[in-house]
Amino acid sequence: MTVQVRLFASLSERLGRSDLQLPVTAGTTVGDIWQQVLGDMPAPANVLAAVNLDYVDFSAPVKDGDEVAFFPPVTGG
């Protein structure tokens, strides 16, 4: 199965890309995906994650076709 990973703002700049397709196995969590995509970068405590446009914890499981996003604290308004 495959998920689409999206990165925003400073995280996108640090990785040098803003989205990628990632093959994953059953039981994979959002935290596992962070490790696979940004493994050499310790997850800052304040990184936020979303699956299919809703906030989730890093322990949340993913399924085929999910859109998984990581981003820094938000600064709108």
Partner: peptide
């Protein structure tokens, strides 16, 4: 509404200063 927007709506500001750019780290 305003506080929810500021703390959770996914927007990010990048500022341009005289000597370069920087992401705003927090509101």
């Amino acid at each position: 509404l305003m506080e929810e927007l500021k703390s959770k709506a996914p927007f990010w500001k990048k500022e341009k200063l005289a000597d370069g750019e920087r992401w705003v780290e927090k509101n």
